[in-house]
Design a binder for these strands. Structure first.
Length: 244
DNA sequence: GCGACAG
DNA sequence: ATCTTGTCGC
């Protein structure tokens, strides 16, 4: 038999929205999920694009939760697909991400997405969507607040403030602005499928001991752009790289 | 109708 | 997402 029903994306935005309603109803939004120390293989996923060619490279990097060392990498190259529409990012990124994840020798125990999960207009962001499709615990770490609001967290690493959806009648807490580095702009963490906000934030801090972004997303982002660069601008080398 | 809006 | 060099600071 062949691939499930994964490599599919809606034909219209209305169809995409209807699909997100189904995803949200199928999601586990209440489990505390795995705490740090309860999982070993943690994956980071990300997608890189090249406007010229329309090429997309989805990357999955698995880290050892204890050492943060890369234990496995996988990529999937594609072209075109669903366009970027705020609120519908999952349809653009997940087809490739699913393909990359399937190329891993063993499934990860937890996945960190580059974007949002529960913090989404319909509570069905990237991480919730990927979690439902794979059955794996999955949360999101985004670099910007999207359509949500927050107050400035304290200045120290570990400080945080609630991320609010003020478009809702009683405003709802949908995530957390979390400072991973003192004096540096916070990241925005939200729960996904099979893991709550509390553990998601704990994992984020462990995965980002030195830089603002967790090593999972840094690793996946780096792998994706290296592969994409190797296909397109195959000429130039990194800054101080030795020349033959 | 217009603007803002994860990546 | 991607376009892009140097520069300020720990």
């Amino acid at each position: 038999m062949e691939a499930p029903t994964d490599r599919w994306w809606p034909a219209t935005e209305a169809e995409a929205i209807a699909e997100q309603e189904r995803i949200r109803r199928a999601a586990d939004l209440t489990s505390p999920g795995p705490a740090p120390g309860e999982v070993r293989r943690i994956a980071g996923v990300d997608v890189s694009y090249d406007e010229e060619s329309g090429l997309t490279v989805a990357a999955a990097v698995v880290l050892d939760a204890g050492t943060l060392e890369v234990v496995e990498e996988a990529v999937h190259t594609g072209r075109g697909g669903f366009p970027y529409v705020p609120g519908l990012l999952a349809f653009r990124e997940l087809p490739g991400v699913l393909a990359a994840l399937e190329r891993l020798s063993d499934p990860p125990e937890l996945v960190v997405c580059d974007g949002y999960g529960y913090a989404h207009p319909r509570r069905a962001g990237l991480a919730v969507h990927l979690g439902v499709l794979t059955g794996l615990p999955c949360f999101g770490v985004a670099k910007s607040p999207f359509v949500f609001s927050h107050t400035e967290p304290g200045p120290a690493r570990g400080d945080s403030s609630p991320l609010l959806d003020e478009r809702r009648d009683p405003p709802e807490v949908v995530g957390r602005a979390l400072r991973t580095r003192s004096g540096v702009k916070p990241v925005f963490v939200s729960a996904g499928h099979g893991i709550g906000l509390e553990h998601a934030c704990a994992h984020t801090l462990r995965l980002a001991p030195r830089y603002r972004l967790p090593e999972t997303t840094r690793g996946a982002d780096g792998l994706g752009r290296r592969v994409l660069g190797g296909i397109t601008g195959g000429r130039r080398e990194p800054r101080g790289a030795a020349r033959r």
